[in-house]
C-alpha cells in the first residue's frame, strides 16, 4: 500500500505544482503589468507605479510565484486588486454555493446513471434498454445551459413552481437553499448522467460476459443477485474513472450554470473578476478549480485500490 500511495501522492503534488506554474505564467507573467491593466492605458505613470508597488508587482516573477505558493500553503491568497479585501474570503463566500451545487449534481448524476445503467444492462436488448439508451443519446446532445433554460421555461415560466434564479442562501434553512439549487443541479446532472449511464451499461455488459458470472449462476444465484453482488463491483472501475473525469466537466459546468441561474458562486466571481481585470482573483479561482479536479482524480485512483484487491500492494 505504501509504495502505491507514495507514488500517487508524489504525482499529485507534481501535478498541482505544474498547474500552479502554468496558471501563474498565463495570468501573472503574460499580461505584463496588472496595475497598468487595472488603471487603463491613459493613467499617469506615477499612479501606475504607485499601484504596482502597492500590489507588490515590482518584485521579480520568481519571488511573486514563490510568495503565491507560500500564501496558498498558509491560506493567505493576497488581496483583491479591485476590492482590496482578502481573496480567500471572497472565494470562501462563493464556495458556500458552488460546493453544495457540485455535490448535489454529482449525487443526482450518480443515482440517475447507475439506475439507468443497471436497468439497461439487466434488460439488454429489450424494449426498456433501447428506450433508455435512445434517451441518453439525446441527453448527451443537450447543451446543459440550454437544458437549464428549458427547465426554467417549464418550472418557472409555465408552472411557476420554482424561481428562475438567484440564491436564497442557507440562513433560511437548508431546504430553502437546496430548493434554489435544485434546477441548477438537475440541469448539470442530466447531461452528465446520460454519458455515465452509457458507460455503466457497457461496463456491466462487459462483466456479464465473464466466466465468473456463470459460476455465480451455477451456485444458484438469481440473475438480479448476480448483477448486484458480482457484476456491479467489477463494473465500477471504468465507471469511477469516467466519474472522476466528469468531475472536471461538472466544475466547468457550474461556471456556466451559475450564469444561467444568476447564482453568486465561484463561476460568477470569476466572470466579475475578468470584467474588473481583477487577475489575482481569477488566478486563485482557476487554481482552485484545477486543484479540485486533480484532487478528485487522485481520490478516484486511491479508491481503485479499495475496490479492486488486485491493485493494492503490487505495481503502480
Amino acid at each position: 500500500m505504501s509504495v502505491f500511495f507514495l507514488r500517487r501522492i508524489l504525482t499529485l503534488v507534481a501535478t498541482l505544482v505544474a498547474a500552479s506554474l502554468i496558471i501563474f505564467l498565463v495570468l501573472d507573467a503574460l499580461p505584463g503589468n496588472a496595475a497598468q491593466m487595472l488603471m487603463g492605458a491613459d493613467a499617469s505613470p506615477d499612479a501606475v507605479h504607485a499601484l504596482t508597488v502597492k500590489l507588490g508587482l515590482d518584485q521579480p516573477l520568481t519571488v511573486r510565484y514563490l510568495l503565491w505558493l507560500k500564501g496558498m500553503a498558509v491560506g493567505d491568497l493576497g488581496n483583491s486588486y479591485v476590492y482590496g479585501t482578502p481573496v480567500a474570503g471572497l472565494i470562501a463566500e462563493r464556495l458556500v454555493l458552488t460546493i453544495p451545487l457540485a455535490i448535489m449534481s454529482m449525487l443526482i448524476t450518480v443515482v440517475l446513471a447507475l439506475a439507468a445503467g443497471i436497468y439497461t444492462a439487466a434488460n439488454h436488448n429489450k424494449l426498456g434498454d433501447v428506450g433508455v439508451m435512445s434517451l441518453t443519446q439525446v441527453g448527451i446532445a443537450l447543451p446543459n445551459f440550454w437544458f437549464a433554460i428549458l427547465l426554467i421555461l417549464l418550472f418557472s415560466v409555465k408552472l411557476q413552481l420554482l424561481s428562475a434564479g438567484g440564491f436564497a442562501g442557507w440562513d433560511d434553512g437548508i431546504w430553502t437553499g437546496i430548493r434554489s439549487l435544485l434546477l441548477p443541479a438537475i440541469s448539470l446532472a442530466v447531461v452528465q448522467a446520460a454519458i455515465l449511464a452509457r458507460v455503466t451499461r457497457s461496463a456491466m455488459l462487459e462483466v456479464l460476459r465473464e466466466d465468473f458470472v456463470r459460476t455465480a449462476r451455477a451456485k444458484g444465484l438469481g440473475k438480479r443477485e448476480v448483477l448486484w453482488r458480482h457484476v456491479l463491483r467489477n463494473a465500477m472501475i471504468p465507471v469511477m474513472t469516467v466519474m472522476g473525469l466528469q468531475f472536471a466537466n461538472l466544475l466547468a459546468g457550474t461556471i456556466v450554470i451559475e450564469n444561467v441561474f444568476y447564482l453568486p458562486g465561484l463561476g460568477r466571481l470569476i466572470f466579475q473578476s475578468i470584467a474588473n481585470r481583477d487577475l489575482i482573483v481569477v488566478r486563485n479561482c482557476v487554481m482552485l478549480l484545477a486543484a479540485m479536479v486533480v484532487i478528485v482524480n487522485f481520490v478516484v485512483d486511491v479508491l481503485y485500490a479499495f475496490i479492486d484487491p488486485r491493485i493494492k500492494v503490487s505495481n503502480l
Binding site: T11, V26, I255, V286, V293
Partner: peptide, 22 residues
Amino acid sequence: MRMSDFTFAFPAVLSAIMLAAV
C-alpha cells in the same frame, strides 16, 4: 501521457477563462 493527463484538469471553459482574462 503525464502531460495529457494534466491537461484534463483544464476543461475548455477554464482555459477560455484564463485566455479571456489576459
